[in-house]
Amino acid sequence: MTELLSARVDSWAWAVRLFKTRSAATAACRAGHVRVNGERVKAAAPLHIGDEVRIRSGGFDRIIEVRRLVVKRVSAPVAAECLLDHTPPPPPRETVALVAIRDRGAGRPTKRERREVDKLRGR
């Protein structure tokens, strides 16, 4: 087997199971949610061994180091060998801000409900 010198960012991210579909990986690149070595990249940008890939999803960044290049989708154990995850652990649930949830179609909040929401948020 010949070693790859570079691979497309979207293809590699899909192959190592960071995205469910290749089109989702391409869309994330197009939206600017994927950075390689600190730079926003297009889907076809070349990726090399040792590059740092940051993927923004769910409000948090995943920080991945490329250890091996693949272009075809691989099994989960092989995918784990292709990357090194430097993502910090998520913050504890207590530090995440509370969000008031309203039922869909409930209309505008009343003055009393608005005061309760403000009280919840600590205002």
Rank of each mutant, 00 (worst) to 15 (best):
Ala31Gly: 07
Ala31Phe: 04
Gly32Arg: 00
Gly32Cys: 01
His33Pro: 00
Val34His: 00
Val34Asn: 01
Asn37Ser: 13
Gly38Ala: 07
Gly38Glu: 10
Gly38Val: 06
Glu39Tyr: 12
Glu39Phe: 11
Glu39Trp: 12
Glu39Gln: 14
Val41Asn: 00
Val41Glu: 01
Lys42Arg: 15
Lys42Asp: 13
Lys42Met: 11
Ala43Leu: 13
Ala44Asp: 15
Pro46His: 12
Pro46Ala: 08
His48Ala: 15
Ile49Tyr: 03
Ile49Asp: 04
Gly50Asp: 15
Glu52Pro: 03
Val53Ala: 03
Arg54Ala: 15
Ile55Trp: 11
Ile55Glu: 05
Gly58Trp: 13
Asp61Asn: 12
Asp61Val: 08
Arg62Ile: 07
Ile63Asp: 02
Ile64Pro: 02
Ile64Met: 10
Val66Trp: 00
Val66Asn: 00
Arg67His: 14
Arg67Tyr: 10
Arg68Lys: 13
Val70Met: 01
Val71Leu: 12
Lys72Ser: 13
Arg73Trp: 09
Arg73Met: 10
Val74His: 01
Ala76Cys: 08
Pro77Tyr: 02
Pro77Ala: 06
Val78Met: 04
Ala80Val: 09
Ala80Trp: 02
Ala80Ser: 14
Ala80Ile: 05
Glu81Asp: 13
Glu81Thr: 15
Cys82Ile: 08
Cys82Tyr: 05
Leu83Cys: 05
Leu84Thr: 09
Asp85Pro: 05
Asp85Leu: 12
Asp85Val: 12
Pro88Ala: 07
Pro90Ser: 11
Pro90Trp: 09
Pro91Phe: 10
Pro91Cys: 05
Arg93Ser: 04
Arg93Pro: 06
Arg93Asn: 03
Glu94Met: 00
Val96Trp: 06
Val96Pro: 04
Ala97Leu: 10
Ile101Asn: 05
Arg102Glu: 09
Arg102His: 06
Asp103Ala: 14
Asp103Lys: 15
Arg104Ala: 14
Ala106Tyr: 06
Ala106Met: 10
Gly107Asp: 05
Pro109Ile: 02
Lys111Ala: 14
Arg112Ile: 05
Arg112Phe: 04
Glu113Thr: 13
Arg114Ala: 14
Glu116Thr: 06
Glu116Asn: 09
Val117Leu: 03
Lys119Ile: 09
